[in-house]
């Protein structure tokens, strides 16, 4: 991936722009946008991890929000016990982070081990069913607020290394995490492992006939993607000071898929563009001041967003990616 292509330049400009966000919003005296863009970047991290499965691996997992939820609840539960029961170590950010990564990895391992024995629509349904099981589990646990969710009174304590309660530090933690994950995915896709994942999407029959049993590679990809989504959850809980079962609802998983479709599947930067477009459209469309027959149009923003999505799927098969110069090396 050379940076000196028109496409590389646009990608770099986007990243440079994102790097400057806190300074710009500071100059504008409005920190709202730092929070908004933080949210976009966290979602893009989750969407990039899901793109490893959908775009590169052809595994349409419809339950990816579950891992975000697992990661987020690790922060929420830790803060809860530190606050209620005075268990201080549970506020330790590194313990919470480890819990978020391990928890989401283990859950992804279990869900993946079962789901990856199926293909196509069955795979979609079974991953969605598992994520709904987690959703209803969270709804059922009264201790942690059931469906009201859990407010986080104290963000992860990173022992002085990063001040999570400072919006700017948190933003840069998110931004550099995104850069790191983008680079990791770039390496991964070109590696031996990435070859197997992309090859299996392209032609599983041929893969088997040249001597590869794809299952364990796909399961590994599933766990990698789940773990990164868990990390996104860890960040999200800190940003929102709040976790709730809603984060795991299947419609949240659907949002991540929409971001990938919007941005362009099987392309490294696609989910980032998709997440930016998705959240921006949500913001803009839902604040349309127009009123028709006593109904505020903004409240029904999805009525406008839906047809837009249909048009994109029909006429720009690769989403925003189709409008960028140069040809992305498709998976």
């Amino acid at each position: 991936m050379s940076i000196l292509t028109p496409r590389g330049i646009i990608n770099s400009l986007l990243l440079i722009g994102l790097a400057l966000v806190p300074f710009v919003t500071e100059a504008m005296g409005d920190s709202f946008y730092t929070g908004l863009i933080s949210r976009i970047l966290i979602l893009s991290i989750a969407a990039i991890s899901l793109n490893l499965l959908i775009g590169f691996g052809g595994m349409v997992s419809f339950g990816h929000a579950a891992y975000i939820g697992v990661g987020a609840y690790m922060v929420g539960i830790g803060a809860f016990h530190a606050f209620e029961d005075g268990i201080d170590w549970m506020l330790n950010g590194y313990v919470q982070l480890l819990g978020a990564l391990l928890g989401s990895a283990i859950i992804a391992l279990i869900i993946g081990a079962i789901s990856l024995r199926t293909r196509g629509v069955y795979f979609i349904m079974i991953t969605m069913a598992f994520s709904q099981m987690l959703y209803f589990t969270a709804v059922g646990v009264e201790l942690y607020g059931a469906d009201d969710g859990l407010s986080i009174y104290s963000r992860s304590d990173m022992l002085g290394l990063i001040d999570m309660s400072d919006e700017k530090s948190l933003y840069y933690l998110i931004f550099f995490s995104l850069l790191l994950i983008l680079y990791f995915m770039h390496r991964l896709n070109g590696s031996h492992f990435g070859n197997i994942i992309r090859g299996t999407k392209s032609n599983e029959a041929r893969m088997r006939s040249i001597g590869v049993s794809p299952y364990r590679y796909r399961l590994t990809a599933f766990v990698i993607a789940g773990t990164i989504a868990g990390y996104a959850g860890f960040l999200m809980a800190n940003l929102n000071d709040f976790v709730s079962p809603d984060m795991m609802h299947w419609t949240r998983s659907g949002d991540l898929i929409i971001m990938i479709v919007l941005g362009g599947m099987g392309n490294l930067f696609g989910p980032l563009y998709g997440a930016v477009a998705f959240i921006m459209l949500e913001e803009v469309l839902s604040s349309i001041p127009l009123t028709v027959g006593g109904l505020r149009v903004g409240e029904y923003w999805q009525l406008i967003f839906g047809p837009m999505l249909i048009l994109i799927v029909l006429y720009a098969r690769n989403g925003i990616d189709s409008f960028l110069p140069g040809k992305a090396r498709a998976s």
């Binding site: 390496r187 031996h192 492992f193 070859n195 040249i210 001597g211 590994t220």
Partner: peptide
């Protein structure tokens, strides 16, 4: 696929 396992995540294949 005949050069050992492919759990190599970093080096370009």
């Amino acid at each position: 696929s005949h050069h050992g396992h492919s759990f190599r995540f970093w080096k370009n294949a």
